[in-house]
């Protein structure tokens, strides 16, 4: 083999090595930040809090749906920006999921009232417990409840979908998408995060936060 050929063989992979993978455009996002007074609130879990600890009340398969919700959102993050795990002890939880209506309060309410004809079976509310120094007091609370018979398959499907939506709120998406095809639409009908939900969550976790979780209880 001539030296020129050998040099060419070596140079080819070096030249090809210069090429990078084409990253997807993440321009298609919706506003995820809540506005409180004149403040735009951007919350995300810091790496030191990962995995976020989620406890779900053992009613109407909520623990099972919590697991599938966590898995659905975990798949969104390729770089381990967010992760969660379900815990057995509510005293150690960062997020508590309970069955039932939320208690009255003055927190920001991130609600999903399923009142359209396709998913009238359940409703839920996420309470981030924000204080005026831009800290989220832990644990966050998610309340989820059936509007009709909780044992019905349609109601169970609604609980599963809605809990995935609420877990989306707990990870920092404090607003609803204006697009009906997104999971974070106020009255979602899709089972998992859409491409736009994914873009939004990814951009959220790479945007500086001005709200952080308070110390764990």
């Amino acid at each position: 083999m001539s030296r020129a050929k050998a040099a060419a063989m070596l140079a080819l992979p070096l030249l090809a090595a210069c090429s990078d993978i084409g990253a997807p455009s993440r321009a298609d996002v919706y506003e995820w930040r809540a506005v409180q007074g004149s403040d735009t609130l951007n919350f995300r879990w810091p790496p030191s809090f990962l995995p976020v600890r989620v406890w779900a009340e053992d009613q109407f398969s909520l623990p099972l749906y919590a697991d599938s919700s966590i898995a659905a959102w975990r798949r969104v993050f390729l770089y381990h920006e967010w992760d969660a795990v379900r815990v057995a002890d509510s005293a150690t939880a960062d997020v508590i999921v309970r069955y039932g209506p939320p208690p009255p309060g003055d927190d920001i309410l991130l609600e999903r009232f399923a009142i359209d004809s396709r998913a009238p079976e359940c409703q839920a509310t996420t309470l981030p417990h924000l204080d005026d120094v831009h800290e989220v007091h832990l644990p966050m609370h998610v309340y989820i409840a059936a509007r009709f018979l909780p044992e019905l398959p349609e109601t169970q499907a609604c609980l599963a979908l809605t809990l995935t939506h609420e877990i989306g709120h707990t990870l920092g998406i404090f607003r609803h998408s204006p697009h009906p095809e997104d999971l974070m639409y106020s009255n979602p009908t899709v089972a998992g995060p859409s491409e736009r939900d994914r873009n939004t969550a990814e951009v959220l976790y790479h945007t500086p936060a001005n709200v952080s979780p308070a110390a764990r209880p």
Binding site: A16, C18, S19, I21, P24, L78
Partner: peptide, 19 residues
């Protein structure tokens, strides 16, 4: 040398591969 991509990257909309 190889060109790296995975099914997960492709599912997330990545194109081509990383040298």
């Amino acid at each position: 040398f190889h060109r790296f991509t995975t099914p997960a990257l492709q599912a997330h909309g990545y194109s081509g591969a990383q040298g």
